[in-house]
């Protein structure tokens, strides 16, 4: 198993009820694996975040489900700047 620090922002922090936590995933786990785990854990509110949100891994925001995870992943709801 590998530990991943997951940080939550804005609506994602509301959905998780926290700003960060460490989750354990099998070695070689991907962004898709993390997304499924978080939706299972936090339900519809988190599913809503991921509908148009992304994960930030290694400095890149991605919606690709096949990106290998590193030590940290940030859950980013859809951006609304400007």
């Amino acid at each position: 198993m590998a530990d991943v620090l997951v940080r939550y922002f804005a609506a994602a922090a509301d959905a998780a009820g926290r700003e960060e936590e460490t989750v354990s995933l099998p070695e070689g786990a991907t962004t898709g694996d993390l997304k499924r785990l978080l939706v299972e854990r936090y339900g519809d509110e988190m599913a809503r975040v991921f509908r148009s949100g992304s994960l930030l891994v290694d400095g890149r925001a991605t919606r690709d489900e096949h990106v290998p995870l590193g030590a940290r992943a940030d859950v980013l709801p859809p951006f609304a700047g400007g």
Partner: peptide, 12 residues
């Protein structure tokens, strides 16, 4: 402005 809205992680 179009790219800022799409690419910069800011929430409202």
């Amino acid at each position: 402005v179009d790219r800022i809205k799409v690419e910069v992680p800011i929430w409202k």
